[in-house]
Design a protein around this nucleic acid. Sequence first.
DNA 1: TTGTAATCGTTACAAATTTCACGATTTTTA
DNA 2: TAAAAATCGTGAAATTTGTAACGATTACAA
Lengths: 205, 205
Amino acid sequence: MKKISRRTIPRTLLYLRTLESLIKEGRYTVSSGELARITGLTDVQIRKDISNFGRVGTPRIGYKTRELKNILKDYVLPENIIRMVLFGAGSLGTAILKYPGFRKQRLKISAAFDKDKRKTGKTINGVKVYPVERAPEVIRKSRVDIGIIAVPSEHGQEVADLMVGSGLKGIVNFAPVSLNLPENVSARDIDLSIEFLALYCDTRM
Amino acid sequence: MKKISRRTIPRTLLYLRTLESLIKEGRYTVSSGELARITGLTDVQIRKDISNFGRVGTPRIGYKTRELKNILKDYVLPENIIRMVLFGAGSLGTAILKYPGFRKQRLKISAAFDKDKRKTGKTINGVKVYPVERAPEVIRKSRVDIGIIAVPSEHGQEVADLMVGSGLKGIVNFAPVSLNLPENVSARDIDLSIEFLALYCDTRM
DNA sequence: TTGTAATCGTTACAAATTTCACGATTTTTA
DNA sequence: TAAAAATCGTGAAATTTGTAACGATTACAA
Ligand SMILES: NC(=O)c1ccc[n+]([C@@H]2O[C@H](COP(=O)([O-])OP(=O)(O)OC[C@H]3O[C@@H](n4cnc5c(N)ncnc54)[C@H](O)[C@@H]3O)[C@@H](O)[C@H]2O)c1
Ligand SMILES: NC(=O)c1ccc[n+]([C@@H]2O[C@H](COP(=O)([O-])OP(=O)(O)OC[C@H]3O[C@@H](n4cnc5c(N)ncnc54)[C@H](O)[C@@H]3O)[C@@H](O)[C@H]2O)c1
């Protein structure tokens, strides 16, 4: 099993998303050239990425959509459901809790936590909102993989510490603050302001 | 004025965010090493990025927080406010509309658009929600720079076409669908499912 | 059955990005 | 005043990432 380079993983997930959409349209095959047109990448890059996973395409035909989907899945999706918890049932947190699209991706939010007593006790879209103190207990009990930070940035670090202390190994952080985390915890920061500003720079060049 | 390489731009915005936070704490200077510890990048990378903008640091001292902030701002932030419009006042769209943090970054949402008559007419956090048909007119009138797509993925392309037709040059797309756009329009796709899944892959390696 | 066109997979190449190594500069202090 | 310590800036090396070129393979049509 070859080592997959860092950037190919999100691209592979994008191929998966595209394949699922093509399958839904009833397509049986697709070429690297067409995937390139759809995704905005180049055909060579796509062939190269896919070649990481074995020889799967057929000259003159391309790739069989279902077959390719299953192969890619084996490499980048787990068999079991990915369990997540959310900290901060505010406006962004609530939007995430309400989103029905995660289920299809085997992503499940097991629980939410909030500091504000007016938010706790409720159930949003089937997910219970606990007081933040109960986080370690609830997280340990339900074998959670990933934590989502959707609290104000001033509380980002304290929530991150709580997550690490509860054994989480991955954090998605929406708060515009840099987290101090141990080596063995992975994080992805999504700062929407930076996204908008960077896009604006892109448009000026 | 040197050409700034593509990846340095979001990093520079991250330095700005960090500097603003340090300034708020009352810090007058900061070294590349300390910026590295905070942001998780390396000190060399930070010095190299900053060197794009001129010789601004002082040996033995580091960088003056305010001075560096102003210099970076000149390169990656516009003088004027960046105007944005939002399509889809659903749960994610509403969270974005309600977020007060954009103002500090000179980001302003000028208007929102929705197809659903139950959502239009309202004002969310001071932003009017118009019927989607009025988009071209409203966008042209208010010199908007960027459009945000927060509609279901089935409607992503039609909304993108409407944006392009109204003259927008940048699109941030939250819908899990690949958009077909002309060359001269920049886009950034934020697919939260892919973010979560890619993070999960990261934790398994 | 054979030629042709489309497409894959891969090797070699190019470009971008990051890291390394180290000299230069400035402050501190002995 | 001179040595020491901390830090910057930068050219060169290393790494990563992406691109181009092209032979190999397959389906299909003549
Ligand atoms: N809403 C957006 O569109 C948007 C955009 C960019 C960034 N963000 C960032 O995402 C984060 C959440 O934004 P939001 O708009 O949902 O904020 P919000 O104020 O609506 O919600 C924050 C929630 O976190 C809870 N909370 C506070 N401290 C907590 C703690 N220690 N533990 C658990 N819960 C705690 C609060 O009670 C509240 O319910 C913020 O960091 C914000 O900067 C949001
Ligand atoms: N909410 C999340 O956390 C989340 C997570 C991942 C991805 N997304 C994506 O973000 C997008 C929005 O998600 P959401 O949860 O806010 O959905 P939502 O259903 O709550 O809201 C969608 C809104 O778009 C409006 N709309 C539909 N077609 C439109 C059109 N042609 N023009 C204008 N408005 C139109 C609807 O009336 C509705 O108000 C979706 O593509 C979704 O897949 C959301």
